[in-house]
Design a protein around this nucleic acid. Structure first.
Length: 496
RNA sequence: GAGCCAUUAGCUCAGUCGGUAGAGCACCGGACUUUUAAUCCGGGUGUCCCGCGUUCGAGUCGCGGAUGGCUCACCA
């Protein structure tokens, strides 16, 4: 490699015709003493500002910058569309204004180039607000052709792998991510206004706790020890309640070493919050309020449309114990059964159940098959079995069940919350049960966390906790059927 | 991890019964000083995802593989 940036044009045989032509134009610009990869440009207006304030700006000079997205040449006059982060504005080039030499430079211009333009704001004969270009600078030459203007980029594989191209040519994509940013901002403000302190806890865990999931492992070289990427921040956040924080939340990435689907990505964003001296009912209230508040801020209504279906987020949402929901949709009452009786009922219903499935597993299966598909409008499913809720407090009137809830919207589980178990003795027993599960081969069962028990032994106030799936919330509010549509760079296998 | 489907030009897509590769946009050359999916004239730019096989002959049929999508399983 030499010092000249032009030298890789020598690999021409590897470039197709379209790219070769652009490299040639690049070289021509260099030869003319023009830097095709310009410099800082101080704009005076954005595209949208010029459109919005045309009445006062007409006939005024302006400096704008952005990417050229289409061109219409007419001999000695030409039109182009310049797009910036706010929108599109038409450029008008005339040989009379630019001079022969300046106008000839247009031949070196390609769709996709980033320009800085100085010109005058006016309206064309056909009524379009435009900028008549007096001078233009190449701020960045584009060396690759963009997808075509009508259909954009459709190939989802390419859209996700080359999100930068997707963002350039499919305008709706950026809107989704702008909305995502707004939702997170709204949520932060909402929690902050209610006295929740945002904290950051470790992502590298010695014990992967706080959820039932397989973790990713990594290695710390200096300490020569394996670490886990966090599957949940829960156990750290509750240590903070022990330490005297009253209301805390953490918003960030979680990592779970599990399958990928339209609703699952190996790394995803969750917001967990904890309220000392509260319980599950407080957490249900705040869940409803958050969804309703975000909807109001975003669309000015608590009714939204997802995939053509109206969803009414207006609080309060119905609460429905899991066993009642199963009874309602399957006609089977699973209340108070032992493992054997539960398996028997599952078999009678033709459900596929592991031979040594527990009561809790059977409940889960019944729920997934008979209940979940019906949960379109928001509803809290409550009172999960203790075996699958090792960090939740038992219900006072039924120690087999916990004071837990999961809100469902459009059949998705969008959050998970409960009254926190603050009894260290019970917690230790629960961990031991989980370890027994683990030894039976359930590698998603919780690990023992001795230090967490120790923290509880110092006394943790009664508390409500909640984990909000942020990606699913964004999917709902952006009408996106796949999680990949709300992740800028969803996980993809590398191309071989 | 399993099943079904897809993969052809830079992009969006056709391609019949197995007979030697097509369109639109983009691009290149020409005309055109208010167009806007500009228009008009001329030009096809290709590892038909990869490999093996069947065949006189494979984009097309068979087998294997890669990547993606959907469904299922696990979860938020």
């Amino acid at each position: 490699m030499n010092e000249q940036p032009m030298d890789n044009t020598e690999n021409r045989e590897e470039l197709n015709e379209l790219m070769r032509v652009r490299r040639d134009k690049l070289k021509d610009l260099f030869d003319l003493g023009i830097d095709p990869f310009g410099e800082k440009f101080e704009r005076t207006h954005t595209a949208q500002e010029i459109i919005d304030r045309f009445d006062e700006l007409e006939e005024q000079d302006t400096k704008i910058c952005g990417r050229i997205m289409s061109m219409r040449t007419h001999g000695k006059a030409s039109f182009a569309d310049l797009v910036d982060h706010t929108g599109r504005i038409q450029l008008y080039f005339r040989v009379n204004t630019l001079g022969e030499e300046g106008y000839a430079l247009l031949q070196k211009l390609d769709i996709g180039d980033i320009l800085g333009v100085t010109g005058k704001i006016f309206r064309t004969r056909r009524g379009e607000i435009s900028v008549e270009v007096q001078d233009f600078k190449f701020l960045s030459k584009s060396l690759r052709p963009l997808p075509e203007k009508w259909h954009g980029l459709k190939d989802v594989d390419l859209r996700y792998r080359q999100r930068y191209v997707d963002l350039i040519v499919n305008p709706g994509v950026r809107e989704v991510f702008e909305t995502r940013s707004r939702i997170i901002q709204i949520l932060r403000n909402f929690l902050s206004e209610r006295g929740y302190i945002e904290v950051e806890t470790p992502m590298l865990h010695v014990i992967a706790g706080g959820a039932s999931a397989r973790p990713f492992t990594t290695h710390h070289n200096a300490l020569d020890m394996d670490l886990y990427l966090r599957i949940a921040p829960e156990l750290y956040l509750k240590r903070l309640l022990v330490g005297g924080f009253d209301r805390v939340f953490e918003l960030g990435k979680m990592f779970r070493n599990e399958g990928i689907s339209t609703k699952h990505n190996p790394e995803f964003t969750m917001c967990e919050l904890y309220m000392a001296y509260g319980d599950a009912s407080d957490m249900m209230k705040i869940t409803e309020e958050i969804y309703a508040h975000v909807a109001m801020e975003l669309v000015g209504s608590t009714k939204i449309v997802f995939q053509g279906q109206e969803i009414d987020l207006t609080p309060p949402w119905p609460r429905k114990p899991m066993l009642e929901a199963i009874k309602e949709y399957s006609g089977v009452d699973l209340t108070g059964l032992n493992d054997e009786q539960a398996r028997q009922l599952a078999k009678e219903k033709g459900l596929e159940i592991e031979p040594n499935a527990t009561y809790a597993h059977v409940l889960d299966e019944f729920f997934d098959v008979y209940v979940e598909p019906h949960l379109i409008q928001p509803v809290f499913i409550t009172d999960h079995p203790v075996e699958v809720s090792p960090l939740a407090k038992r219900k006072k009137d039924n120690p087999r069940l916990t004071d837990r809830f999961e809100p469902f919207i459009v059949t998705w589980e969008v959050a998970n919350g409960f009254t926190e178990l603050n009894d260290p003795v019970d917690q230790e027993q629960r961990f031991r049960q989980q370890m027994a599960q683990r030894e039976k081969g359930d590698d998603e069962a919780h690990m023992m966390d001795e230090d967490y028990i120790r923290a509880l032994e110092h006394g943790m106030p009664p508390a409500g906790g909640l984990g909000l799936g942020i990606d699913r919330m964004v999917m709902l509010f952006t009408d996106s059927p796949s999680i990949r549509d709300v992740l800028l760079f969803p996980h993809m296998r590398p191309r071989s």
